[in-house]
Design a protein around this nucleic acid. Sequence first.
DNA 1: CGCCGATTGACAACTTCTTGCCAGATCGAG
DNA 2: CTCGATCTGGCAAGAAGTTGTCAATCGGCG
Lengths: 219, 219
Amino acid sequence: MPNTETIAVVRGEAEIHPRIAHLFTTAKTEISCAANDLHTWGIRTGSVQGPQSLAPRIAEGLVVRKLYRSGILLDPLCARYANAVQSAGGDVRITPDELNETIVIDGRIAILAGDLSHGVRSYSVVTVPEVVQGVSSLYAAAWRSATPLSTWDRRVAELREMAPRILEVLASGCKDETAARTLGLSVRTYRRRVAELMAALGAGSRFQAGVKARELGLI
Amino acid sequence: MPNTETIAVVRGEAEIHPRIAHLFTTAKTEISCAANDLHTWGIRTGSVQGPQSLAPRIAEGLVVRKLYRSGILLDPLCARYANAVQSAGGDVRITPDELNETIVIDGRIAILAGDLSHGVRSYSVVTVPEVVQGVSSLYAAAWRSATPLSTWDRRVAELREMAPRILEVLASGCKDETAARTLGLSVRTYRRRVAELMAALGAGSRFQAGVKARELGLI
DNA sequence: CGCCGATTGACAACTTCTTGCCAGATCGAG
DNA sequence: CTCGATCTGGCAAGAAGTTGTCAATCGGCG
């Protein structure tokens, strides 16, 4: 077998981001991407070109699918990016569930993001047909159960506006009564907002919500 | 006035870490440092030399004072580093309070860490005598109210060992009863450990604890 | 061997949070 | 102008978390 049909492990963003950028520019039929945030695949850092650059190729038939966690919609920058992908002709869906961060290119190459180890993240670049097929199936399943961006964005647009202030008072460690007063809301309404934030973050406890908010750079 | 007596603003770690490294090697009488974590001043990333390199100069009379947040002692690497500074002849104190991250060199230069802005941190490098004096005074006040490392470390040594597992179940979002069972503890004991963690992190709510744990890289 | 200090687990009181329900207010469409 | 939809705030029930107290256990020390 040609040695391109292997699994390569790449360590660190400096290594993986140029490869992704290259793969994105050479993709012919399909780019499918699942991300918990806009950092993993070099989008936030600008390592990958803006979605506008894909528009002509989408018009020519390139299929672009982006699957994101709902939590990222709480960040105005991320929300704007996701909408830009949609405007460029890409298809964007949102899920509240934790995602296995994945990229599939042309049904032939799959990139899977591993765990952080000593501050460095590993990525597996796979070209074995059976493995790529399996990863594609998993992606398709997650895609099917997700919700269109427009539906989610309508829901979180207002929440996004007040999310920074809510997260700030939550992160200050004070009680709901104090937080509500600080924001000029009733306790009930404040608690509604917190519940919405937790739902958007996919968090089952306030501790978990704090961790996720921090991970997403919302705090 | 010589233009060295100014305030310079430096943006980004790549800029500030080499300067700090240089200042550390040229310091004559005193290095005072306050850090909320071991990342801000380039310690965790290795940009600054290990504490052993200071030992000969400490023996010659260089005074090294390090003031850290109690939360960092939950990280074995950080705890080891702090103890190494102490072993090298430095003086290390611990506070549960939030710190204004500062370095003072020879009572003549002060470096203050600002807030993150768009993922980049600003640092102010100050040589104006009056300002440096004021910063030194603030540092001294925080130093006086802090506790020796040995006292704190005795307290958190056992907590440090089980902190990863506790933080992991906390971050999973499950209830205390479930978490306790997962760790093989009673609910009361689990809650004692969580309370100790929150105290070490200086957190008043679980949400705040989640944020701080994530910031410290404990999760 | 006995005593003492530390720790654990059970129980409980209290606080804080989660969510449902309902009345009233507001706003937009017909 | 009316009506329906939506949101807010108050109230409340229940769940989850916080902390105190006490009895039991264990290990170390004299």
